[in-house]
Write a protein that binds this DNA or RNA. Sequence first.
DNA 1: CTGAAAGCGCTAACAT
DNA 2: ATGTTAGCGCTTTCAG
Lengths: 337, 337
Amino acid sequence: MSSNSRKSGRVTLQDVANKVGVTKITVSRAIRTPEKVSESLRLTILKAIDKMGYVPNRAASMLSAKQSKTIVLIVPSLSNGVFADVVRGINDVMLSQGFQILLGHSGYSLLEEERLIETYLQFGIDGIIISGTHHTERSNRLLRKSNLPVVEIMECNDNAIDMSVGLDHAQAGYKMTQHLIGKGYKNICFAGARMDLRAQLRLDGWRKAIWETELSDARVLTSSYASTYQMGADMLTEILGEWPDTDCIFFCNDDLAAGALFECQRRNLKVPKDIALVGFNDLDICSATNPKLTSVCIPSFDIGEQAAKLLLKKINGEPIENKHLDLGFIISERAST
Amino acid sequence: MSSNSRKSGRVTLQDVANKVGVTKITVSRAIRTPEKVSESLRLTILKAIDKMGYVPNRAASMLSAKQSKTIVLIVPSLSNGVFADVVRGINDVMLSQGFQILLGHSGYSLLEEERLIETYLQFGIDGIIISGTHHTERSNRLLRKSNLPVVEIMECNDNAIDMSVGLDHAQAGYKMTQHLIGKGYKNICFAGARMDLRAQLRLDGWRKAIWETELSDARVLTSSYASTYQMGADMLTEILGEWPDTDCIFFCNDDLAAGALFECQRRNLKVPKDIALVGFNDLDICSATNPKLTSVCIPSFDIGEQAAKLLLKKINGEPIENKHLDLGFIISERAST
DNA sequence: CTGAAAGCGCTAACAT
DNA sequence: ATGTTAGCGCTTTCAG
């Protein structure tokens, strides 16, 4: 019967109950299980809630209930269009099921990722979707110890912590390179920035295809710095300086490829006649530039959607047929090759 | 003395205390106020915490303590490079002060924004940073009733809920248009997609400058759909069809301007000789394309940083000299004009 | 430096 | 259809 709003300054269930003249559990029921409260009372309560500006305290619910109806999504980058699509896919599924999504971005730093994991674990979440299958040792420990459902996305990997939804980046790199070789390119260069594990795998695929056809595997340019358009332009310059007979460059992402294309325009190099350019991810920009860029199209939205569905199943204790989903990729051939 | 891990399956303070042979409050102190626990005990406790994989339950802390040390940031879009910078600025300040950041994105929907506000309010946050000064009526009510410190960003506006950090978009549109008029352009078109309030203000600024010089204000093309490169290309096509003598287009953002530039390349139109193109935001792509794009550079990172500092002051009850910070803008003139 | 007791706001389980 | 009781895991007094 006491007014609880002394401490927090926040309106509580008790405050509303006092106002209406019922007990707090009735107010709680009016919100969560309206069919268990008589219509007239319910309307009175709902009106009071609205008028008083009552907002449930999720911390308190979380403490007494088992589920928080909240999951966490950790991605390396927010500005990367690929993850924007992944987020949409996850949102679509989770929101419709009444789940909230907490979003974290690590800026491609595994240590920041670890910090995020630790932080979000404190929020009593019901599950985690996280990018990649490579984390710090401590991150792995935290995730395992948490006993929470974990879906690792983008890659599809048997040594994932629990479940995984993604694609085989080595295979994608391999197939794209094969495709380029098939088109007659002889001096194919691989260029990548911020060589995270997935970029590394793409390079591995490139190497495999190059080796199989006994072409030279010398043309590799990598940087640990971030991918930017400028970096793509610089890489083109460096590659043409180092290996002037390069006839095709396979960039590990679209930003680099687009940056290189702009540099070609400045140098009056014809793409693909003088040099062919290829990206990865097939972002919007690929079908916007002149010429349009060939790229590897990955099912970003589907990855998000499937990951969310998988996580939900696990949370709800439903049986899971396949813990690892390989959603594949498509080579989008355009005018740059 | 009871093992609390029956319900949640989670390791609790009590579990650690049992293991070490102390009470839970001592464990709590070993974490939060280590100087109040003897060194040897502290080390034992810390070791046990690490070994048992204990993770504090923030919901419980939030219930008993007053502060949650968590703030929320709501932006319209994550893939927009402007907000990526804002997020960095806020992160830099808040993380160093031990605050966590919950990130929400509304996809430019005011209703989704309202949903996010309602959701995050439930988490017992200490403050909110939100984009724009225009929200649904219910959003405004929720924010006001919450009694939480609120900083509205991007715009700088006296009718903000509480504090605001941003710039004057109408002024930016006005100054850029004046600049274009000064360069001798006569038939200046304004083109904008997803005409949110800020884009609207830029258009207002354009109009004011156009009116002052008695040029024609007829050349306005807007769309409520999202900005994409393709949309920029389509807009260029439409503008040249409708008003063939247009000599300059001021786009409400860089994506559109870049898309239009690519279309010009396809049509063999020389920029800026045949037509000048201008963007807004000055994202990376502006200094990457050929020719580089003229744009309005806005202090995204600073906006984030200042907003965070302002919010912190308010949270800590410090005096605030200026509730509204106008951080200005710079016209980045490049080769496209 | 360590402990005991009380309570944050809510919900589950069991009454009535 | 509504109320009572107990307790989620933690922090805040207040004691020792």
